[in-house]
Design a protein around this nucleic acid. Structure first.
Lengths: 347, 347
DNA sequence: CGGCGTTAGGAAACCGGTTAACTGGCCGCG
DNA sequence: CGCGGCCAGTTAACCGGTTTCCTAACGCCG
């Protein structure tokens, strides 16, 4: 078969892609017809035969619409950005993974951006939103008094808050965080503990506050006494400091830490304080990753549906871009407990 | 001050951005002049005064060029993609972080894509490259016989191989991996070990092979005998299996694992085999992350310059996009040793 | 004073799509 | 038979930049 004359001749040397005009010409129709058929425009009428010719031509030429051209014409880039506090935190990366995956399924691309401070967040905003690179924002990094939040509601850019809710925004997508505290508390109770403590995340961050609140609410329901709630950073160092404070002061025999890093830090802190795990103190971490099973001792964790959360986040923003109204959503997937050896009855 | 008539009137209701035409009008020049001045086109001449008017108008209107329009006109999206094997691996995320950071500094955006198998890689290729979304690819996921590599050299898309070199490609950006083995071996020798082993990554992956090769090369130079080199997956499970095999068979008193996850797995494996760390067996991990300091015992690691690697990777692809020829590069930053308590003299 | 080379900038085509407005032909109906 | 309406498309404007080619005005020179 000789090379398609309409193609090689037109495109010159550097193997450029087929354009809509090429498809139209090959099918013997106008660009408009080709465009509408390929986008299955509902109020465009064409003979089945014509449709077929267009589809086949597109197929044969390997036509893929050029996103920049389409973005320019429609003013939609089919791109969303995900703002996370810290890229090197597996929690956010797992959320991101779910979001990316789902966005891709819906034919959107996602870009990730780190929001480590006000400045970087606003820079990201300018470099992504202001130049039309992204249509919507998934914000997983909301902090109290964050400049970004004001900027968001002023600008009319579609956005959702993921994981870290912003009260009253009406666009929060979160997990059932209270249930995770409940699982931890119940496990401690079932093991026979009486005195429990919580290494919480920083104050003002919605899931931290909520997890702490639920811990305080549910512990009494299971007959437990809460000795202490320590609000510390989401890091190993924070966890270590929290555990140290708890173990120095109180008679707590069980600690629930609100992240994996904190739990690892807490284990370290407990050892430093001369406590054995789980004989002297039981520890539960939040968020389950493979590493938990390989720690010494293997860490009991609450497995949060992070990937699902990311998927729902992507759906939420894309729904919004496609015209739906934003809503608050607690995702249906529930946390589960992964019992390992860092928890045992008190001695 | 009344609202700028040229703006509010023209743009209608929904607060749209200033366009080049707006800037041009405000400065009393043509779009062409505005474009050339704002892009500092070297062979365009304008009076200093005119330049100033244009710059000031752009400033005043908060003008930012619309990326899609520019991409369409120039056929450059100023976007690169980073292909990593697995998003939930801190090593790659750290590399990605460096790459993102550097790309941003050079006014590019990066999208990250997971390449967990041939299919996903080719899908990413289609969804990103074929539609003109990205101009270049940073491939950090090269595996032997990967379909992608063939596709890459066929298509003319600019790309670099990061971390995992592809022999003969002439576009590899890597760290001095041999030096990491040398640091580990030397540390073991200085502690007085005689019999050492290596938990390596899978065969065929460039840095795995190179690290193993260097381990075998340098150990004798320091008077050490290599009992075993186990090629296993880059995971905790792999590390555990590797350590088990090593400790069952041999008299090795020191193990160098080629990733943090493997090292954590190896520690687990050693404990399972009834060995104490570091009394019975010393362990060094590769790649230093905060968590290493909080393990039990705190893990000695070789700190690889992952973030720097990412930065150089971004530079390499962007240089290529801006016309330079691809080259092989070993980045200048050298690995260092972070000594902690998982290593000690043999008993 | 006429011709020529510069300088400073403008007009318009183009990138590759989308979309509003329009049209020719055919059918049905009064 | 004349007219309206629908079907099956077409034409052309437009999105917001970049870039090629052109020109008016000016100074210089012979």
């Amino acid at each position: 078969m000789p090379p398609e004359p309409g193609k090689g001749a037109q495109n010159g040397l550097h193997g450029s892609r087929a354009r809509l005009a090429d498809v139209a010409r090959a099918a013997g129709v106008s660009k408009a017809a080709a465009s509408k058929v390929l986008n299955s425009d509902p109020d465009f009428s064409a003979r089945p035969e014509t449709r077929l010719r267009i589809m086949e031509a597109a197929q044969a030429l390997g036509y893929r619409p050029h996103v920049a051209a389409r973005a320019l014409a429609t003013s939609h880039a089919r791109t969303v950005a995900l703002l996370v506090p810290k890229l090197t935190n597996m929690t956010y990366v797992t959320i991101a993974r779910g979001a990316f995956e789902r966005a891709r399924e819906r034919d959107y691309v996602s870009v990730m951006s780190e929001d480590y401070d006000e400045y970087s967040a606003m820079a990201a905003f300018r470099d992504l939103v202001d130049v039309g690179r992204v249509d919507g924002l998934i914000v997983a990094s909301a902090r109290p008094d964050h400049t970004l939040i004001g900027a968001l509601s002023e600008s009319r850019i579609p956005h959702v808050f993921l994981n870290r809710a912003v009260a009253g925004s009406g666009r929060n997508v979160v997990m059932d965080v209270a249930k995770s505290s409940r699982l931890a508390v119940r496990h401690f109770a079932e093991l026979g503990h009486r005195y429990v403590a919580h290494v919480a995340g920083p104050r003002g961050i919605a899931p931290s506050d909520e997890r702490a609140r639920a811990f305080l609410e549910y512990a009494p329901e299971f007959g437990l006494e809460v000795c202490q709630v320590e609000h510390v950073e989401f890091s190993e160092a924070g966890g270590a400091a929290g555990a140290a404070a708890i173990l120095e002061a109180g008679r707590a025999t069980a600690i629930y830490a609100s992240s994996l890093a904190q739990a690892i830090g807490a284990m370290h802190g407990a050892r430093e304080a001369g406590r054995r795990i789980p004989e002297d103190v039981s520890i539960i971490g939040n968020d389950d990753f493979p590493i938990a099973a390989y720690l010494s001792p293997p860490l009991t964790t609450v497995a949060m549906p992070l990937r699902e959360l990311g998927r729902f986040g992507a759906d939420a923003i894309i729904d919004q871009l496609e015209g739906k109204h934003p809503v608050d959503l607690v995702i249906p997937t529930e946390p589960t407990l992964a019992v390992r050896s860092s928890t045992a009855p008190p001695s």
